[in-house]
Design a protein around this nucleic acid. Structure first.
Lengths: 155, 155
DNA sequence: GGTGAAAATTTCGAAGG
DNA sequence: CCTTCGAAATTTTCACC
């Protein structure tokens, strides 16, 4: 499905999406046209989801990251749907995962500061009944990347 | 520092980095040239960090997300440095945060499956002495975005 | 998968309000 | 700080090998 060259293309484009197909082809050992065709296919197959600009959170005033562990009150499909809809609509929520184990949901939230987090927290707890909410505050972002590793070892 | 138009530019480019300056200018109410200058400035000031392709984890065989909560054995700068260096070098680690509270570090890890996670876990626990490691497994990714909200409310 | 080339777009500076 | 103009440089994309 995804051969070595596809993986190389993905690796490059995850690092720099401004590469032209000519430059990209050069790096993966292909001329422009077949390279372009592969990129097209990867986009149409939903492997490449899009190209976006990555922005530093601090300059835009969103330097505080909080991980929020949530336990649900009930475990019905209806509750889950309501929760998912509500939570997804909140702008400060960057990630939502349904978890295995004690914690039912894990969120990653980006806010300006504690005051902003408290406002979020209040909206969160008002929107859906929750059994337990535990907030874990990040002091320092040591590393963060969007590029998945595509080494041959990952097959 | 960042006026309303800059914020609009950031919002657009976080959604779609393939926009030409002409299209971008149209959306934010500017002609191409000043729009281009603003984008240049945002890039030079480190607000825009780069443009990347976003890839779906499943097709490349990295469908399992794990949050790893770590407690450190000691809290010296030397330990932290060693830990940061080691952890940052591991390809499956997507995010590393130093935390406040009980948990000292929170990681987000992307792996193929449980087998791959176990291999990671072993490498992790071998690399640096750790007091406690708790793995939280994601069953379903309900939402994930890279675009920070840049509403006026975020100031 | 590769070549070549036409067509379309984009970048970025000049001139001016 | 913005606008329009414009030309050079790239890039996309296609027909054909």
């Amino acid at each position: 499905m995804l051969d070595l060259i596809d993986r190389k293309i993905i690796a490059e484009l995850q690092q720099d999406a401004t590469l032209s197909v000519a430059q990209l082809g050069e790096r993966v050992g292909l001329s422009a046209t077949p390279c372009w065709k592969r990129v097209q296919r990867l986009e149409q197959n939903g492997v490449i989801l899009g190209r976006v600009a990555l922005v530093a959170p601090e300059p835009i005033g969103l330097g505080l990251t909080v991980f929020v562990a949530i336990e649900a009150t009930d475990h019905s499909p209806a509750w889950r749907k309501t929760f998912a809809d509500n939570i997804s609509a909140m702008p400060e929520v960057m990630e939502v995962h349904r978890m295995a184990g004690e914690v039912d949901y894990m969120l990653r939230v980006a806010v300006a500061d504690m005051t902003a987090y408290d406002l979020f927290y209040q909206r969160l707890t008002e929107s859906v009944p929750l059994k337990n909410v535990t907030s874990h505050f990040a002091m320092e972002r040591i590393a963060a990347k969007t590029a998945y590793p595509v080494d041959i070892t990952n097959r």
